[in-house]
C-alpha cells in the first residue's frame, strides 16, 4: 500500500511539473510582448527595456524558465503583470467563490437529478419518463452560456426573483446570489445524472431482491427508496468526485456572465492579457486540485480493491 502511494505521488508531481512546463513553453512561444501588459501602450522603448530586465523577460529560455517556474518551486508565484498584486494572494482570494459555486452546482445537480431520475425510472416509457428524459437530453446538450443568459434574463431580470449578477454579502444574500450561476453550472451535470440514475435504477428494479421485496407486499414507494435508490446511487457518487474538472471548465463562462469573482473568470482574463505569472499560478493550482482529487479517488479504489494496487 505504501509503495503504491509513493508511486502515485511521484507520478502526480511529475504530471503537475509537465503541465506547468508545457504551459510555460507555449507562453514563451507566442509573439506578444508581456512587458506591454506591465506598462501599457504609451510607454517608450526605454521603459520597456528597463521593465523587461527587471521582470526577467530579457533572458534566454532556460534562464526565464528558472526565473518563473524555478521560483514557483520555492513557493514564490510572483506578481501579476496586470495588477502587480502577488499571484498567491489573487488565487487565494478567488478560489473560495469558485469552490462555493462548485459546491452549489453539485448540490443542485443531485437535487434535480434524483427526483427526475426516480420519476423517469419508475414511470418508464410513460409521459413522465419522456418529459424527464427529454428535459435531461436537452439539458445535456445546451451550451452553458445559453442556459446562463436565459436564466439571467428570465429569472433575474423579467421575474426579478434572483439578483442579476454579483457576489452578495452575508450568508442569505450570498445564497441568493448563488442560485442562478449554480443552476447554470448544474444543468449539464443534472441532465447527465438523471439519465445515469434512470438507467441504473431500471436495472436494479428488475433484479431479484427487488422483486422479492415487492412480492413481500411492500409498497412501491418503500421498494423504490429503500432498495432501489441505495444501489442505484452507487455509480452516481463515483462520478461526483471526477466532476471537478467539468465544473471548473464550465465555471469560466458562468462566472463571466454573472460577474462572479472566482478563479474561472480570473483565468480567462489572465489568458487574454498574457499575464504569465498569473496563468502559471492558476494552471499549477488547478492541476494540483485535479491531480489531488484523482489521487484520492485512486487511493480509495486501491484500498477497497487490492487487485488494482498490484497491477498499477
Amino acid at each position: 500500500m505504501i509503495g503504491y502511494l509513493v508511486r502515485r505521488l511521484v507520478w502526480s508531481v511529475f504530471v503537475i511539473w509537465f503541465v506547468v512546463s508545457t504551459t510555460f513553453a507555449m507562453l514563451m512561444w507566442i509573439p506578444a510582448e508581456p512587458a506591454r501588459t506591465l506598462v501599457g501602450p504609451h510607454a517608450t522603448p526605454e521603459t520597456l527595456a528597463r521593465v523587461r530586465q527587471a521582470y526577467c523577460l530579457d533572458a534566454g529560455f532556460v534562464e526565464t524558465y528558472g526565473c518563473f517556474v524555478g521560483r514557483m518551486v520555492r513557493g514564490d508565484m510572483g506578481e501579476s503583470f496586470r495588477t502587480g498584486r502577488d499571484v498567491a494572494g489573487i488565487i487565494a482570494d478567488k478560489i473560495w467563490p469558485t469552490v462555493q459555486l462548485a459546491l452549489a452546482a453539485m448540490f443542485l445537480q443531485l437535487a434535480m437529478a434524483i427526483p427526475l431520475g426516480l420519476i423517469a425510472a419508475t414511470r418508464r416509457n410513460r409521459l413522465a419518463d419522456y418529459l424527464a428524459s427529454g428535459t435531461a437530453a436537452i439539458g445535456q446538450s445546451a451550451p452553458t452560456f445559453f442556459v446562463g443568459l436565459l436564466l439571467m434574463y428570465l429569472c433575474g431580470y423579467r421575474l426579478g426573483w434572483f439578483p442579476i449578477s454579483g457576489y452578495g454579502e452575508g450568508f442569505w444574500d450570498r445564497l441568493h446570489h448563488l442560485i442562478l450561476p449554480g443552476l447554470t453550472l448544474a444543468v449539464v451535470g443534472a441532465a447527465y445524472y438523471t439519465r445515469l440514475l434512470r438507467s441504473e435504477m431500471i436495472e436494479v428494479l428488475t433484479t431479484d431482491y427487488v422483486r422479492t421485496a415487492r412480492a413481500k407486499g411492500l409498497s412501491e414507494r418503500m421498494v423504490v427508496t429503500k432498495h432501489g435508490l441505495r444501489t442505484g446511487l452507487g455509480p452516481v457518487v463515483t462520478f461526483i468526485g471526477l466532476d471537478l474538472g467539468v465544473l471548473m471548465g464550465g465555471a469560466v463562462v458562468t462566472e463571466s456572465i454573472f460577474a462572479w469573482p472566482g478563479l474561472g473568470r480570473e483565468v480567462l482574463s489572465a489568458v487574454l492579457n498574457i499575464d504569465i505569472p498569473l496563468i502559471l499560478g492558476v494552471v499549477t493550482v488547478t492541476s494540483l486540485a485535479i491531480v489531488g482529487a484523482n489521487l484520492v479517488t485512486d487511493l480509495a479504489y486501491a484500498w477497497l480493491d487490492p487487485r488494482v494496487r498490484l497491477s498499477a
Binding site: V15, V19, W29, P31, V246, G249, V271
Partner: peptide, 24 residues
C-alpha cells in the same frame, strides 16, 4: 493520457486556443 486528463478539457482548450490565436 493521464497527463492530458490532468486538466479540464475546456480550460485546456481555452488556453491552447488563446495562445494559438496570437501566433501567425
Amino acid at each position: 493520457v493521464d497527463m492530458v486528463l490532468a486538466f479540464p478539457f475546456l480550460l485546456l482548450a481555452i488556453l491552447l486556443a488563446a495562445l494559438l490565436r496570437e501566433s501567425a
